[in-house]
């Protein structure tokens, strides 16, 4: 087995892959969220931004898309394999085990991760390819958003995803710095203020779009 194979086979190696891909994905989320907020600058500005990404710099967009695809696949495969190993590591369960310090966020990483994976597939089919969109227009991204969120179930599905995203980031961002060996020793190692701020800003920023559409703040 080669060096990379050994690294991927080790539980620490797989977790490091999850941390590194997680950092890439968080970086993307911040840019994506900031881009989305241009919705509040009007249809012309928003559609121009969309045209920039989908037309003017499409080669660059594809590099980013492929990087993200590889990151999501590695992140999800490593998570699945580690979860299976972790479950196998305790074949006989406790009659009674009481978590002492586990956060709600850490306990929902797996379910939330599956929800987010389904969400990503739906979201790309919804607003990028238009496969799941009732009236998709290649050049009218602003209109696509308004129509896309016109039904409550879809808006709620998006908001649910952002709820899980905030939990995922609250635990994941903090954990990534520890997994990648970058965190400094701390008197209170469970503290995670940077992760809290980023989780609220990113998930909150994304949520503004469906909320604004449903509240009739953008036309």
């Amino acid at each position: 087995m080669g060096r990379l194979g050994k690294f991927w086979d080790s539980s620490v190696g797989k977790k490091i892959v999850m941390g590194a891909t997680g950092v890439i994905l968080v970086g993307f989320l911040i840019i994506h969220m900031a881009g989305n907020l241009q919705l509040f600058l009007g249809a012309e500005r928003f559609n121009a931004y969309s045209k920039l990404l989908k037309h003017d710099i499409i080669e660059l967009t594809w590099i980013v898309r492929l990087t993200l695809l590889v990151s999501v696949v590695l992140h999800a495969v490593a998570a699945y394999q580690l979860t299976m190993r972790n479950k196998a590591a305790r074949p006989e369960p406790y009659a009674k085990r009481v978590p002492q310090v586990s956060t709600y966020a850490s306990q929902t990483m797996r379910y939330g991760g599956v929800y987010l994976l389904l969400f990503i597939v739906y979201h790309i089919g919804h607003f990028t390819t238009g496969t799941f969109h009732p009236a998709f227009s290649e050049s009218g991204t602003f209109g696509n958003v308004l129509i896309g969120f016109s039904t409550w179930p879809i808006a709620l599905f998006y908001l649910g995803a952002m709820g899980f995203l905030s939990l995922h980031l609250y635990h994941g961002i903090w954990a990534a710095f520890r997994t990648l060996g970058l965190a400094r020793p701390s008197g209170d190692p469970l503290k995670r203020q940077i992760a809290l701020v980023l989780a609220i800003v990113v998930a909150g920023g994304f949520s503004l779009v469906p909320l604004a559409v449903k509240l009739g703040l953008v036309h």
Partner: peptide, 17 residues
């Protein structure tokens, strides 16, 4: 770390328990 895996222990998810 290799021996830890061979023994069949699980991996770290930083629950802090």
């Amino acid at each position: 770390v290799t021996q830890m895996d061979i023994e069949g222990f699980g991996g770290c998810t930083l629950f802090g328990e």
